Amino acid sequence: MPRVRIKVDGVTYEDEVEPRLLLVHYLRERLGKVGTPVGCDTTNCGACTVLLDGLSVKSCSVLAVQADGREITTVEGLGPGGELHPMQRAFHTEHALQCGFCTPGMIMASIDLLRENADPSEAEIREGLEGNLCRCTGYQNIVRAVRRAAEEMRQAPEREVTS
């Protein structure tokens, strides 16, 4: 079996993994990172989005062996010392969730969106998140949350944690 060395939320793990094991299952079942939900297993919904070397990926489309030597940030690893990341705080403040199933993926994709564009328009936010589906919210509050977090992160970029 292949052996991998993956840094997840600041901790390095070394494991033997089946060659076909998906990253989402490695994170949840081996490491207990259950904040990354299994949504569709087909890359359609985006619920399982994590940051891989700082870039958002749908972890159901990445094999654990492909993450060997790389760094993963999950929603659990965003806030330093248990603090909420500005994006997490904005989602809470703006009521950008209902059932919460899509929230981890939305947060992670939003952080990557702001890495590329620190001050996106509403249309740019909607376009940037189009690979992440929400069945509950209608997206209005999600867009507001991303705008709020963008503003906070521009004002205090040293507090930004992305990987």
Rank of each mutant, 00 (worst) to 15 (best):
residue 30 R to I: 08
residue 91 F to I: 07
residue 131 G to M: 05
residue 52 L to Q: 10
residue 163 S to D: 11
residue 70 R to W: 03
residue 61 S to W: 00
residue 151 E to T: 14
residue 15 D to Y: 09
residue 109 A to M: 01
residue 20 R to I: 08
residue 131 G to N: 11
residue 155 Q to G: 06
residue 68 D to I: 00
residue 92 H to E: 08
residue 63 L to C: 05
residue 124 E to D: 09
residue 52 L to I: 10
residue 97 L to W: 03
residue 21 L to E: 13
residue 16 E to W: 10
residue 23 L to V: 01
residue 67 A to L: 14
residue 64 A to D: 06
residue 79 G to C: 08
residue 120 P to G: 03
residue 143 V to F: 13
residue 155 Q to R: 13
residue 35 G to D: 12
residue 76 E to G: 03
residue 102 C to Q: 01
residue 67 A to Y: 10
residue 87 M to A: 02
residue 47 A to K: 04
residue 7 K to A: 14
residue 16 E to M: 11
residue 37 P to A: 07
residue 62 V to F: 00
residue 52 L to M: 14
residue 101 F to N: 10
residue 67 A to K: 11
residue 10 G to P: 07
residue 24 V to G: 09
residue 69 G to W: 00
residue 96 A to K: 04
residue 88 Q to K: 12
residue 149 A to F: 10
residue 7 K to H: 05
residue 50 V to W: 09
residue 99 C to S: 04
residue 3 R to K: 14
residue 78 L to N: 13
residue 99 C to T: 03
residue 18 E to K: 14
residue 141 N to L: 13
residue 95 H to F: 06
residue 125 I to D: 08
residue 116 E to S: 13
residue 130 E to R: 15
residue 10 G to H: 07
residue 113 L to C: 12
residue 32 G to Y: 13
residue 56 S to M: 06
residue 143 V to S: 05
residue 109 A to C: 02
residue 132 N to A: 03
residue 55 L to N: 11
residue 124 E to G: 02
residue 3 R to D: 12
residue 51 L to N: 02
residue 149 A to P: 12
residue 119 D to P: 04
residue 6 I to Y: 11
residue 79 G to H: 08
residue 26 Y to M: 07
